[in-house]
């Protein structure tokens, strides 16, 4: 059985794992909530992925990324999620791009050049406004599940404008919109617009834009709103929640010299 490589991305909300074969093809992807036992979650993801790929033994090399990157006992190396998202997206697109990653608790803007080198990056300020955590809070306030949000936002005629930076203040704003009889669909779309506003104020987004992360994976309407705002299409990779893990696996393969 030929060698394979592993990338694991332990994010604030979810752990994503990708296995690559020796020619860089994806063998398996697994995803689980990160929970509280990062090491255990990573190990379970690996077991599942190895089984699903029909392989035996362990990866030749593993790179861990994400906030929990230091907790992966089987990792040979660690890289930041900024490196891994950049590497994963560039692998998929292969040209100069600006990447937006909307994660569970932080957002990133990463600029890659034509050679796949990172030119610049930004992370959101320490506030979680505009991240996955914001969307979870809004769902909670509206008594919805996060899975229901995208359909509602897509069905809205007119969004309400939510003006606050602060998640808690936004929840208060929502209360006053509800009192005034605003439709839930409009409020959800307003919240999605607020996510896009937080992103576009981070850094100028020039050229082609690629969007990744769990929020993008589960809410295509946010991509539509973003494209509308930018006035051009936004590229979404095949598995947008896994680009960090893919970048980590590609880094592992590269480090092994394959």
């Amino acid at each position: 059985m030929s060698t394979f490589y592993c990338g694991v991305d332990i994010g604030a909300s979810a752990t994503k794992l990708v296995l690559l074969d020796d020619i860089g093809e994806v063998l398996a992807r697994t995803l689980r909530p990160s929970g509280v036992d990062y090491a255990g979650t990573a190990a379970t993801c690996l077991d599942e992925a190895v089984r699903s790929a029909g392989r035996e033994g362990g990866p030749a090399l593993t790179v861990a990324t994400g906030y929990g990157r230091d907790n992966v006992a089987f990792a040979d190396e660690t890289r930041t999620e900024i490196h891994c998202h950049g590497t994963g997206c560039f692998h998929e697109v292969g040209r100069r791009i600006s990447i937006i990653d909307i994660g569970g608790q932080d957002n990133k803007v990463i600029h890659m050049d034509d050679a796949g080198r990172r030119r610049e990056f930004k992370m959101n300020r320490k506030c979680a406004a505009g991240t996955g955590a914001f969307i979870e809070e809004i769902a909670l306030r509206l008594g919805l599940t996060v899975e229901q949000l995208d359909g509602l936002a897509a069905a809205a005629d007119e969004p309400v404008r939510l003006g606050s930076f602060c998640t808690v203040f936004t929840k208060t704003e929502i209360l006053s919109h509800l009192r005034r009889g605003a439709a839930v669909e409009s409020i959800v779309r307003g919240a999605f617009i607020s996510v896009v506003d937080r992103i576009v104020e981070m850094d100028p987004l020039e050229g082609e834009v690629v969007a990744t992360g769990g929020v993008i994976a589960h809410n295509p309407t946010i991509v539509e709103i973003l494209a509308e705002h930018l006035g051009r299409p936004v590229i979404v990779p095949e598995a947008p929640q896994f680009t960090g893990a893919l970048g980590a696996a590609l880094t592992a393969r590269r480090a092994a010299g394959d």
Partner: peptide, 10 residues
Amino acid sequence: RTQFEALIEQ
């Protein structure tokens, strides 16, 4: 930490 490390990686 992530930002420091990412700049060093870069």
